[in-house]
């Protein structure tokens, strides 16, 4: 599973960690995140992320 970086603030979504603060379990692929998921640091939308 790939990591994705927020192009606005630099936050990296790591699927192994997920986004526990927002109820995203570890092991969730970026592609499987809900469409309305936003960057937990800056609020940017999913389309503002780039695969790294």
């Amino acid at each position: 599973m790939d990591k994705y970086e927020c192009q606005i603030c630099g936050y990296v979504y790591d699927p192994e960690v997920g986004d526990p603060d927002n109820n995203v379990a570890p092991g969730t692929a970026f592609e499987s995140l809900p469409a309305d998921w936003v960057c937990p640091t800056c609020g940017a939308a999913k389309e503002d992320f780039k695969k790294i």
């Binding site: 606005i8 603030c9 640091t41 800056c42 609020g43 940017a44």
Partner: peptide, 9 residues
């Protein structure tokens, strides 16, 4: 109203 990244999170 939150305005994240204008200009910090």
């Amino acid at each position: 109203v939150h305005t994240p990244m204008v200009h910090w999170p």
